[in-house]
């Protein structure tokens, strides 16, 4: 969904640029707390992995393709603020080195595919983690659902931006229907890729999945309290 130069007018592009810069600024501060000895080495590799998977366009219906955005994936693996920094690096490199996503649209692309997919993906993930049984095996599914939801939301936000500053006069209802329709399909791909990637790390080293830590901590507590009870009973 890389927005090229020219789709949105200058005021809208400046506005999204300000939003993106502010969010990245906050992330630079907030990411410090997420970056410990386990997430720090992962972060750069997660960025590189997201870049690689974004090259893999998969077909969605006739003559259309889509690719991973990666917000939910990065947020669950290394934390939402660090995840936003990872994705921002990806979009900046894609824009400057690969001419993918307009230079004046860089703020728009960071806002849509970075901030939005990280925020929606992470919030849906955390919400599901809160209401569902506290099982480690559910973490990858929750990440996949968060990823699935984040893509159509990002496409809807594009329509809102287009309503504010689109350079052509396109009926918004048809634009919304077309954008959300195709991005629900792309979202399914996003969900599957996120499920597989998070599931793979979870299978070998669950402690390296940032979003799985509350579940792991809880499990340790349960084991510890059971141990205490047993000791108490035998004494």
């Amino acid at each position: 969904m890389h927005v090229p130069d020219g789709f949105l007018d200058a005021p809208t592009s400046v506005a999204t640029g300000v939003v993106a810069a502010a969010a990245v600024g906050v992330a630079l501060v907030k990411a410090r707390k997420e970056l410990d000895d386990r997430t720090a080495p992962m972060a750069g590799l997660v960025a590189a992995f997201v870049f690689a998977v974004q090259m893999l366009n998969f077909p969605v219906g006739a003559g259309t393709s889509g690719h991973l955005m990666g917000g939910a994936l990065a947020a669950v693996l290394v934390g939402p603020w660090t995840g936003l920094l990872c994705l921002s690096v990806v979009f900046i490199v894609q824009c400057l080195l690969f001419a993918d996503g307009g230079i004046t649209a860089l703020g728009t692309n960071i806002t849509l595919m970075g901030i939005t997919t990280v925020a929606v993906g992470w919030l849906v993930f955390k919400g599901l983690q809160l209401v569902m049984p506290k099982r480690l095996s559910l973490t990858a599914i929750q990440a996949g659902i968060g990823a699935f939801v984040s893509v159509p939301v990002a496409s809807l936000l594009f329509v809102l931006l287009y309503a504010a500053g689109g350079t052509a006069d396109i009926p918004l209802d048809t634009l919304a229907t077309a954008m959300v329709g195709v991005h629900v399909l792309i979202g399914i791909g996003e969900g599957i890729i996120t499920f597989l990637a998070v599931g793979a790390i979870l299978a070998v080293r669950p402690d390296l999945v940032y979003g799985a830590r509350p579940i792991l901590a809880r499990r340790e507590l349960e084991i510890r309290s059971t141990a205490t009870k047993t000791t108490g009973a035998s004494a």
Binding site: M1, N57, S65, M179, H183, I186
Partner: peptide, 8 residues
């Protein structure tokens, strides 16, 4: 990878 245009 698919060479078709992406969603947008």
């Amino acid at each position: 990878a698919s060479g078709s245009p992406d969603g947008l």
